[in-house]
Amino acid sequence: MTLAAALLFALVSPSAAQAVAAGPCQGHKIKTFRFSTGRVTVFKGAGFVCALTYAEKPGRARKMSVTLQARGHRAITRSGTFRRYAGPLSVRAAHRCVKVTGSVGDGSLKPRWIQC
Protein backbone atom coordinates (compact mmCIF):
# COMPACT_ATOMS: atom_id res chain seq x y z
CA MET A 1 0.00 0.00 0.00
CA THR A 2 1.48 3.31 -0.95
CA LEU A 3 1.66 6.17 1.50
CA ALA A 4 -0.96 8.09 -0.50
CA ALA A 5 -3.34 5.13 -0.33
CA ALA A 6 -2.64 4.77 3.39
CA LEU A 7 -3.46 8.44 3.98
CA LEU A 8 -6.65 8.15 1.92
CA PHE A 9 -7.58 5.07 3.95
CA ALA A 10 -7.00 7.13 7.12
CA LEU A 11 -9.37 9.86 5.94
CA VAL A 12 -12.09 7.39 4.94
CA SER A 13 -11.92 5.20 8.04
CA PRO A 14 -10.32 6.96 11.04
CA SER A 15 -10.74 4.06 13.50
CA ALA A 16 -9.19 1.56 11.12
CA ALA A 17 -6.55 4.06 10.03
CA GLN A 18 -4.59 3.69 13.21
CA ALA A 19 -3.12 0.51 11.74
CA VAL A 20 -1.83 0.74 8.19
CA ALA A 21 0.06 -2.20 6.77
CA ALA A 22 2.97 -0.91 4.76
CA GLY A 23 5.67 -2.29 2.56
CA PRO A 24 9.17 -2.04 3.97
CA CYS A 25 9.20 0.57 6.71
CA GLN A 26 9.60 4.11 5.44
CA GLY A 27 11.43 6.87 7.27
CA HIS A 28 14.50 6.61 9.44
CA LYS A 29 15.44 4.03 12.05
CA ILE A 30 14.95 5.44 15.54
CA LYS A 31 15.53 2.44 17.80
CA THR A 32 16.44 -1.24 17.94
CA PHE A 33 15.43 -3.29 20.97
CA ARG A 34 17.24 -6.63 21.36
CA PHE A 35 16.02 -9.68 23.28
CA SER A 36 17.20 -13.29 23.57
CA THR A 37 15.78 -14.63 20.29
CA GLY A 38 15.56 -11.50 18.14
CA ARG A 39 15.15 -7.76 17.88
CA VAL A 40 12.47 -5.18 17.18
CA THR A 41 13.52 -2.35 14.89
CA VAL A 42 11.44 0.85 14.87
CA PHE A 43 11.28 3.51 12.15
CA LYS A 44 9.62 6.94 12.06
CA GLY A 45 8.52 9.04 9.13
CA ALA A 46 5.58 11.05 7.74
CA GLY A 47 3.63 10.92 11.02
CA PHE A 48 3.84 7.13 11.30
CA VAL A 49 5.85 4.72 13.44
CA CYS A 50 6.68 1.40 11.78
CA ALA A 51 8.20 -1.73 13.35
CA LEU A 52 9.48 -5.18 12.42
CA THR A 53 10.51 -8.08 14.65
CA TYR A 54 13.53 -9.97 13.28
CA ALA A 55 14.64 -13.46 14.29
CA GLU A 56 18.17 -13.66 15.71
CA LYS A 57 18.71 -16.85 13.67
CA PRO A 58 16.54 -16.63 10.53
CA GLY A 59 15.70 -19.62 8.37
CA ARG A 60 13.62 -21.97 10.52
CA ALA A 61 9.93 -21.08 10.57
CA ARG A 62 8.69 -20.15 14.04
CA LYS A 63 6.02 -18.09 15.73
CA MET A 64 6.79 -14.35 15.67
CA SER A 65 4.91 -11.17 16.45
CA VAL A 66 5.23 -7.40 16.50
CA THR A 67 2.83 -5.10 18.38
CA LEU A 68 2.43 -1.31 18.35
CA GLN A 69 0.09 0.80 20.44
CA ALA A 70 -0.17 4.57 20.08
CA ARG A 71 -1.18 6.06 23.45
CA GLY A 72 -4.95 6.41 23.60
CA HIS A 73 -5.56 3.74 20.94
CA ARG A 74 -5.90 -0.05 20.86
CA ALA A 75 -2.82 -2.20 20.37
CA ILE A 76 -2.41 -3.79 16.96
CA THR A 77 -0.44 -6.96 16.30
CA ARG A 78 0.93 -8.82 13.33
CA SER A 79 1.72 -12.41 14.25
CA GLY A 80 2.16 -15.78 12.60
CA THR A 81 4.79 -18.30 11.61
CA PHE A 82 7.66 -16.69 9.73
CA ARG A 83 11.24 -17.53 8.77
CA ARG A 84 12.89 -14.10 9.00
CA TYR A 85 10.66 -11.35 10.39
CA ALA A 86 7.15 -10.33 11.49
CA GLY A 87 5.78 -7.10 10.08
CA PRO A 88 6.06 -4.45 8.94
CA LEU A 89 3.37 -2.85 11.07
CA SER A 90 2.61 0.90 11.16
CA VAL A 91 0.56 3.22 13.35
CA ARG A 92 -0.25 6.90 12.97
CA ALA A 93 1.62 8.51 15.84
CA ALA A 94 2.93 11.93 14.89
CA HIS A 95 3.18 13.25 18.46
CA ARG A 96 2.09 10.30 20.60
CA CYS A 97 3.93 7.88 22.80
CA VAL A 98 3.99 4.41 21.25
CA LYS A 99 4.31 1.09 23.08
CA VAL A 100 6.41 -1.51 21.22
CA THR A 101 6.60 -5.26 21.87
CA GLY A 102 7.66 -8.28 19.86
CA SER A 103 8.45 -11.96 20.14
CA VAL A 104 10.30 -14.75 18.35
CA GLY A 105 9.64 -18.30 19.59
CA ASP A 106 9.98 -18.38 23.39
CA GLY A 107 11.77 -15.03 23.63
CA SER A 108 10.04 -11.68 23.83
CA LEU A 109 10.66 -7.99 24.30
CA LYS A 110 9.15 -6.46 27.41
CA PRO A 111 6.90 -3.53 26.44
CA ARG A 112 8.88 -0.37 25.72
CA TRP A 113 7.54 3.15 25.26
CA ILE A 114 9.10 5.42 22.63
CA GLN A 115 8.53 9.07 21.59
CA CYS A 116 7.47 10.08 25.13
Rank of each mutant, 00 (worst) to 15 (best):
F35H: 13
G27N: 03
V66Y: 05
G23W: 00
K44Y: 03
S65V: 00
L68P: 07
K44W: 03
P14A: 06
A17L: 03
F35G: 06
L52E: 15
C50Q: 05
R62I: 09
P14F: 05
S65K: 04
K29N: 10
T53N: 03
R62A: 12
A19L: 02
G45E: 08
K29I: 04
V49L: 05
V66N: 06
V20Q: 15
F43T: 08
G38R: 11
G59V: 11
T41R: 09
P58L: 15
I30E: 15
A21K: 08
F43N: 02
A19V: 12
G47W: 04
R60W: 09
G23F: 00
A21T: 04
T37C: 08
K57Y: 10
L52W: 10
G23C: 01
F35L: 01
R39M: 15
A51G: 06
A61T: 15
T67E: 05
E56N: 07
L68D: 04
L68M: 07
V42N: 06
H28L: 03
G45F: 06
A17Y: 06
K29D: 13
P14Y: 02
R34Q: 14
T37Y: 10
A61W: 07
M64Q: 03
P58Y: 11
L52N: 13
T67Q: 12
K57A: 15
A16G: 10
A17V: 01
A17C: 13
Q18N: 08
V49P: 01
K31T: 09
C25N: 02
G23L: 02
A51D: 13
G45Q: 08
C25Y: 00
Q18M: 10
S36N: 14
R34F: 01
P14R: 13
G38T: 05
A22S: 14
A21L: 09
G45C: 12
R34H: 09
A22Y: 04
S65Y: 01
C25H: 00
T32L: 06
Q26P: 03
V66A: 11
M64V: 01
V42F: 01
V42T: 09
A17M: 02
A21D: 08
P58G: 15
F48H: 07
R62P: 05
K29E: 12
R34K: 14
E56V: 10
A22E: 08
A19S: 15
V42S: 01
A61V: 12
K63A: 06
G59T: 13
T41A: 11
L52T: 12
V42K: 02
S15T: 10
F48N: 12
A61D: 11
G47P: 03
G27T: 03
P58D: 14
C50V: 11
Q26E: 14
A61M: 13
F33R: 06
S36F: 08
H28W: 00
R60H: 02
P58M: 09
Y54T: 12
Q18S: 07
P24V: 09
F43Y: 15
F35W: 01
G45D: 11
S15D: 09
S65F: 02
A61C: 06
K57G: 07
V49N: 06
S65D: 10
F35N: 06
I30W: 02
S65L: 05
K57T: 15
A21E: 12
S65A: 11
F48W: 11
V66Q: 11
L52V: 14
F43P: 02
S15C: 03
Q18H: 11
A46L: 11
A16F: 00
A51H: 04
L68Y: 01
F43M: 02
K57S: 08
S36W: 06
